[in-house]
Design a protein around this nucleic acid. Structure first.
Length: 482
RNA sequence: GGCGCCAUCGUCUAACGGUUCAGGACGGAGCCCUCUCAAGGCUCAAAUACGGGUUCGAUUCCCGUUGGCGCUACCA
């Protein structure tokens, strides 16, 4: 078998779509699994849709995700350039070659005429397609129009009879009748190719072995197969991926939530979680494992375990995966992310030691879905409470609490470098002395320390905060709470 | 409208004709643990779209219906 070469070929619309990430991932996974090459190619043949900085953004976001390409913009290989707008003459040459071989033809129809034809077809309830007006134009007329500089496109000739079958690795054989195929424009009047021409030429010259792309391309694949045949080139293998859907099952769109990978990145999702999540949208390992690293995916991936029906992008499961990946991260890495978050927060002026922050991370491990939760769910680790949650106060703070806490504070003062166990022992001793249940101390103390009624274990909070700070907060609470 | 693709719990999915009263996960409900909140453990509710075939036997194969989606541009 020849070398596996796959490609991700997005058009630079300004951001990387999560569906695009999955397509890129599957291409990457197959290439890596087979020891092949993964290519990034930019399909920017539509001049009207140019977006400034879109390529850089795409490359950046892809790099963030960890789905690294071997050849592409900035990583020139043997088969570049990898940006289609830099390959225009290639496409033009082959489009004209096809005209010379009578497999394509010049078309001088105006946009107005095309529109008219279409409207007439719609009115007559006929399928809309080009009426092939220019397909058999006399040579003399073509020459005359060309000489006059009439605007024109090049259309491919579709056989008038018969049908075409191609194999899709995910869907099996797909057959379509030539009759319903349009004489597709392959070279536009501005000299740029359409997708259909460019994709065939590039996949051929870049020696792509597997075309893995979204299902929206399934219908136009017969045209591509025809073109490969016209050029006398081998047809690559195709695998058309099921679409990613909105909760209402329509094609995943911006209207119903975030579709840009960048948005998820900004919201604090881990690349590990996002990659793991999209990998499982349409693929599964065949057993009950769900949590994978990119390396593990590379080992396990196989196209024949890719399903064929669309998958709803379910944020709740993504959140769970983020939690799972986050809790598996080494403290040092979470620490790095936490510091980055703090640097942009209200606490940026406060000097926290790595040791302190690491202990906060340890106590918050099971309680955070995102790194930002460490701060948002437990701000009391970063500054003393300024107020006390009213509900918890009325439920947990008794008339005698001030007196009890005073006693506790004194007991804590006597402690020397206390461990979590030391705090626990001291608290139980005080409870016994006062002849009350430990809970009578625990809840008010939690309020005094954190200002809220829920959070990590009390002794952990004490230990993280340290003796001095804990005592300060106890005193502050006694003064402030009646 | 035409053509194509798809169809298992709310969602992601497993079951490659028969160890299946259809398994797992997310989410939901409940219980346990417990100083609270989580985490964890246990339990529960929840699906083969419908109708025909083929077969000793269909979630699985075939046909039809229905539904969803995609394509139907000088956009990709």
């Amino acid at each position: 078998m020849t070398d596996v070469r796959t490609r991700f070929a997005p058009s630079p619309t300004g951001f990387l779509h999560v569906g695009g990430l999955r397509t890129a991932l599957y291409n990457y996974l197959l290439a890596k699994k087979e020891g092949g090459t993964f290519v990034l190619r930019i399909e920017d043949t539509d001049q009207s849709r140019k977006v400034e900085g879109a390529v850089e953004n795409l490359v950046d976001t892809l790099a963030w995700s960890g789905v690294q390409y071997d050849e592409g913009p900035g990583k020139e290989g043997e088969y570049g350039p990898y940006i289609q707008s830099q390959r225009i003459t290639l496409y033009q040459k082959y489009a004209h070659q096809l005209v010379g071989e009578n497999k394509a033809y010049y078309c001088f129809c105006t946009a107005e005429r095309l529109k008219e034809v279409r409207e007439r077809q719609i009115a007559a309830k006929l399928p809309t397609a080009y009426d092939r007006h220019c397909r058999n134009l006399p040579k003399s007329e073509v020459e005359k129009n060309l000489k006059r500089g009439e605007p024109h496109v090049i259309r491919m000739k579709i056989p008038l009879e018969g049908d075409l079958t191609f194999n899709d690795l995910i869907r099996g054989d797909v057959t379509i009748s030539h009759k319903i195929l349009d004489d597709q424009v392959i070279l536009k009047s501005d000299g740029y190719p359409t997708y259909h021409l460019a994709v065939v030429i590039d996949d051929h010259f870049m020696k792509i072995s597997h075309v893995i792309r979204g299902e929206e391309w399934l219908s136009s694949t017969p045209k591509h197969v025809l073109l490969f045949g016209y050029f006398g080139w081998d047809v690559p293998r195709f695998a058309h991926l099921p679409l990613l859907l909105n909760p209402d099952k329509s094609k995943l769109s911006k209207r119903q939530g975030d579709v840009a990978v960048e948005e998820y990145r900004l919201k604090g999702y881990l690349k590990e979680a996002l990659v793991n999540f999209v990998a499982l949208l349409g693929w599964n390992p065949g057993d009950e494992r769900e949590l994978f690293t990119l390396e593990e995916l590379t080992k396990e991936f196989s196209l024949d375990r890719v399903g064929s029906s669309g998958a709803v992008f379910n944020i709740e499961k993504l959140d769970w995966m983020n939690f799972e990946h986050l809790r598996r991260k080494p403290v040092e890495e979470v620490l790095r992310m936490l510091k980055e978050y703090l640097a942009n927060s209200d606490f940026k002026e406060k000097p926290f030691t790595d040791e302190y922050l690491s202990s906060v991370i340890d106590t918050m491990r099971e309680r955070m879905n995102f790194v930002k939760d460490i701060v948002e769910k437990s701000p009391y680790f970063f500054s003393p409470p300024l107020s006390y949650e009213p509900n918890a106060l009325s439920k947990r703070w008794k008339r005698s609490s001030s007196e009890h806490l005073k006693e506790l504070g004194e007991a804590f003062s006597a402690l020397n470098h206390p461990s979590t166990e030391d705090y626990e022992k001291a608290l139980h001793a005080v409870a016994e002395k006062l002849n009350i249940a430990p809970a009578e101390l625990i809840h008010p103390l939690r309020l005094a320390l954190s200002g809220v009624g829920s959070g990590p274990g009390l002794y952990d909070i004490l230990h993280v905060l340290g003796k001095d700070e804990s005592i300060r907060r106890i005193q502050a609470a006694i003064e402030r709470i009646p």
